[in-house]
Amino acid sequence: MPELNDYRIRVASLEDVRPALEMKLEAWRQAYKNFRDEDFFLFHEQQLEAQVAWWERGLASGAQFIIAENTSGEIIGLAGGTPSIDEDQDAGVDIELGMLYILEDHYGSGLGGHLLDVVLGQRPALLWVLEGNDRAIAFYRKHGFEFDGTSEELTGSWRGLTELRMVRRNG
Results as ranks from 00 to 15, higher is better:
residue 57 R to M: 14
residue 81 G to S: 13
residue 102 I to Y: 03
residue 54 W to P: 02
residue 115 L to A: 07
residue 83 P to D: 08
residue 82 T to P: 06
residue 95 I to S: 10
residue 71 T to G: 01
residue 103 L to M: 13
residue 45 E to W: 12
residue 101 Y to C: 02
residue 80 G to F: 02
residue 69 E to A: 13
residue 46 Q to N: 15
residue 73 G to E: 06
residue 110 G to S: 08
residue 93 V to P: 01
residue 76 I to V: 14
residue 76 I to K: 12
residue 84 S to W: 10
residue 46 Q to W: 05
residue 90 D to Y: 13
residue 105 D to W: 09
residue 37 D to N: 12
residue 38 E to I: 12
residue 109 S to N: 03
residue 96 E to A: 09
residue 41 F to E: 06
residue 67 I to Q: 00
residue 54 W to V: 04
residue 83 P to G: 10
residue 36 R to Y: 14
residue 113 G to A: 01
residue 37 D to E: 11
residue 70 N to M: 06
residue 66 I to S: 14
residue 77 G to Q: 02
residue 108 G to F: 00
residue 60 A to S: 09
residue 82 T to G: 02
residue 71 T to R: 15
residue 82 T to I: 12
residue 54 W to I: 11
residue 45 E to S: 02
residue 48 L to M: 11
residue 73 G to R: 02
residue 53 A to S: 14
residue 95 I to L: 12
residue 104 E to Y: 03
residue 82 T to V: 13
residue 70 N to K: 11
residue 47 Q to N: 09
residue 64 Q to N: 10
residue 65 F to Q: 08
residue 76 I to W: 04
residue 114 H to Y: 06
residue 109 S to A: 09
residue 59 L to I: 10
residue 113 G to T: 15
residue 77 G to E: 14
residue 99 M to D: 08
residue 49 E to S: 03
residue 48 L to Q: 11
residue 69 E to K: 00
residue 106 H to K: 07
residue 69 E to D: 10
residue 58 G to I: 11
residue 42 L to S: 15
residue 53 A to G: 04
residue 112 G to E: 04
residue 85 I to M: 12
residue 83 P to E: 13
residue 78 L to F: 07
residue 39 D to W: 06
residue 38 E to F: 00
residue 84 S to I: 07
residue 101 Y to I: 10
residue 68 A to M: 02
residue 65 F to R: 07
residue 86 D to T: 09
residue 42 L to P: 00
residue 91 A to P: 03
residue 110 G to T: 05
residue 89 Q to I: 13
residue 99 M to R: 08
residue 75 I to V: 07
residue 106 H to N: 10
residue 80 G to K: 11
residue 52 V to F: 10
residue 112 G to F: 04
residue 55 W to H: 10
residue 56 E to T: 06
residue 72 S to P: 01
residue 89 Q to F: 14
residue 61 S to C: 08
residue 48 L to E: 10
residue 60 A to T: 12
residue 100 L to W: 03
residue 113 G to H: 13
residue 52 V to G: 04
residue 67 I to P: 07
residue 79 A to R: 03
residue 87 E to T: 14
residue 109 S to E: 03
residue 86 D to V: 12
residue 114 H to C: 01
residue 73 G to K: 12
residue 56 E to K: 12
residue 94 D to I: 15
residue 69 E to R: 00
residue 116 L to F: 09
residue 59 L to W: 04
residue 81 G to E: 10
residue 99 M to V: 14
residue 93 V to S: 01
residue 54 W to Y: 13
residue 92 G to T: 08
residue 42 L to A: 08
residue 67 I to N: 00
residue 41 F to M: 02
residue 115 L to G: 07
residue 116 L to R: 05
residue 70 N to C: 12
residue 39 D to P: 04
residue 55 W to Q: 14
residue 107 Y to T: 03
residue 114 H to S: 14
residue 78 L to V: 00
residue 44 H to A: 12
residue 49 E to P: 06
residue 77 G to V: 09
residue 57 R to K: 13
residue 51 Q to G: 01
residue 83 P to T: 09
residue 53 A to C: 03
residue 53 A to P: 06
residue 73 G to N: 06
residue 73 G to Y: 07
residue 87 E to Q: 15
residue 103 L to E: 02
residue 51 Q to F: 07
residue 111 L to A: 00
residue 61 S to F: 02
residue 68 A to W: 05
residue 72 S to E: 15
residue 110 G to E: 03
residue 87 E to G: 03
residue 51 Q to Y: 07
residue 114 H to V: 03
residue 107 Y to N: 01
residue 36 R to M: 13
residue 100 L to I: 14
residue 67 I to R: 09
residue 50 A to T: 13
residue 63 A to Q: 15
